[in-house]
Design a protein around this nucleic acid. Sequence first.
DNA 1: TTAGGGTTAG
Length: 391
Amino acid sequence: MSSFGRLYKFFSTAAPAVSETTISATKQAIATTPKPNKPTKPTSQAARLKQLAKNFKKSSKNPSFRLRIPYYESTVYRLAAAKQFNLIQDILEHQKQFDSITDERFTVRLISLYGKAGMFDNASKLFDEMPELKCERTVISFNALLAACVNCKKFDKLEALFRDLPGQLGIKPDRVSYNTLIKSYCVMGSVELAVGVIELMESKGLAPDLITFNTIFDALYRNKKMDDAEKLWVLMESKNVIANVRSYNPKLRALVADERISEAVELIEEMRAKGVMPDIYSFNALIQGYCFEKNLEQAKRWYGELAKCDVSPDRMTYEIMLPFVCDIADFDYAFQLCKDVLNSKHRVSMSVIQRVVDGLATDLKSEEAEVLVDLADTNNYFHYKLKLPAE
DNA sequence: TTAGGGTTAG
């Protein structure tokens, strides 16, 4: 049976009548939430994060604060990176007391944050609680729950919810739902199933879109399935979906990884000819390729190309270039790059910059080394603690 | 609400 056949059968079978619904089955004790690991960071950091959570809760009283999505995101990311799951639960559960919780878009963001933090049980519990919180549940919150499954790698759970919840809650999966199912298959390594979903969604009257194809391109190129990807380009064009820069970038990375850098350069030209402007991900792919080939001249050329194309370098650009430039001991150029970093808002790993400072000092370029240390001291975005080597 | 590499502090 084809992928489509298997998928169609699976997703077209009505959910069995059960007294204990799948929803409640998804309810799991919060006790099963990932437990904070043994603290590995200094207590001062733990104290700082506790204060962060406290301030966050205090600010939440303000309705305009509750619209500041990036603040919510960065706070949860910081806490998740430090494995402070109890604090994440603390600040997100705190939001339930505000009337924003009756707004589905707000609650969906909380579900999504739990998902990004890897706290699936909390995401699922919040979804279940929506009716009692007087918050309408539509396909949007269903999709957020599916996305939480992907982020938490609960692939079996996603399939079960996708099959059972629409019938139980009277929700009709939409294109976003199917794209999330596709993403799930891609992440779990079943790209063939992901491709099969295109036919499945079409059988439900939903046309695949750019996100559908780009999601699968990324998975195919990561797995070096170049031939399958070419077939997908043909299919995409037959559906009148127009490629964008995010369709091309996975291919660029795959060509570079395969050491076919001249073909990657040709692809950039092809993109431009089609009016698709390369972005920082595209340029980083090429710079990565040339650094790997130890071709400083070309790496520099493409770094220079960024300014010409009005594209800003990012953290990754420097993380790729600086170690390579240090390897070949071109500290004059490394000095230029570091000045660019320290005058920007990008945060590059401190050890990478320290290596340049050390190299400059060894190269009898103490003045330049001092310039970097001073620039680091006055950097407004991140406090680098660089050290001049002992005299 | 779904497609890229998320360590400031607020």
